[in-house]
Simulated assay, not measured.
Amino acid sequence: MAQLVERAQAEISKQAEGNRFLDLLENGAAPAERLRRLAGELYRLVGSDRRSFALLASRFAEPPAGDLFLAMAEGEAQALRLLLDFAAAMGLGEPELRAYEPRPLAQAYPAYLTQTALFGASSAVALALLANVTESGATYARVADALRSRYGFSENAVGHFRFFAETPQSLLDAAEATVAAGLALGENPDDAVRTARMVSAYEAAFWATMAEGLDEA
């Protein structure tokens, strides 16, 4: 298991690039308009991911996969509620979030996750979680810190980002068990590594889209 996670992380590191939006945010150079856009994009993304994990839970209902994907769907529901606090801090309610017109490339990640939920193996999404959790969590922690220190958001308003900054060990344990169970049933480890790499690339594309049109920090 550890070797497969390391293999996926090695593949991810080959394509790693800087996060320009995060750099801008930490320098206080992202305008208020872009923060509102972030809320709008995340509202679409998280809502889609919630449905994707629920679909995975229905496809792979038996434990450990069923328990993992149900927990992830419930986590997305909680994250969506927390996101409303971030939006509210900028004067946005759900009507404004629903009316927001998303950028196509910002929504490439949830579209890929939906594709994987429909056609992928249980081990694929589980390995993607394990391989990307450290980098993704660090990104969300830095976003929360920058919003607090540079933009004056309250701790309550950045709860969405704090939520994704820390992944419970119980969830990681369930992901490990899901990968092991899937591979034991004959799921292809190469497909799982590919999914982990693609998830990382699409997450990077999301943040890159957030920085489009902004001056360098």
Rank of each mutant, 00 (worst) to 15 (best):
Q107I: 05
L105A: 07
T167E: 01
R34E: 09
E74S: 12
M1S: 14
A146Y: 03
R148A: 08
L56I: 01
F206N: 01
L24K: 04
G159F: 01
F21W: 14
L38G: 04
R98S: 11
E11F: 11
L105T: 12
A73L: 04
Q78W: 04
L118M: 14
L25M: 07
A16F: 12
A111H: 02
E76P: 06
A184V: 09
R162W: 09
E212I: 15
R162C: 13
R98Y: 09
A87D: 00
L127Y: 08
G182M: 13
A177F: 09
S170P: 06
G47I: 07
V199I: 15
S52D: 15
G93K: 08
S136P: 04
L24F: 01
A217M: 08
A175I: 02
V199T: 08
A8K: 00
E101A: 15
L80P: 03
E187A: 05
G213L: 15
A138M: 10
L118S: 12
A126Q: 00
L97A: 00
S122N: 13
M72K: 01
A141M: 03
Y140G: 03
V193A: 00
L70A: 00
A174F: 01
A192F: 09
R197C: 07
S48A: 15
Q78C: 12
T134I: 14
H160D: 02
L83Q: 07
Q9L: 09
A10T: 14
R81H: 13
Y151T: 12
L92A: 06
A61S: 12
G47R: 08
P104W: 08
E33H: 10
G186N: 12
E41Y: 01
H160S: 05
G40I: 01
W207L: 06
G213T: 05
L92Q: 09
Y100H: 14
D173G: 04
R7F: 12
N132H: 10
Y112V: 04
E26I: 05
T139F: 08
N19G: 10
P168H: 11
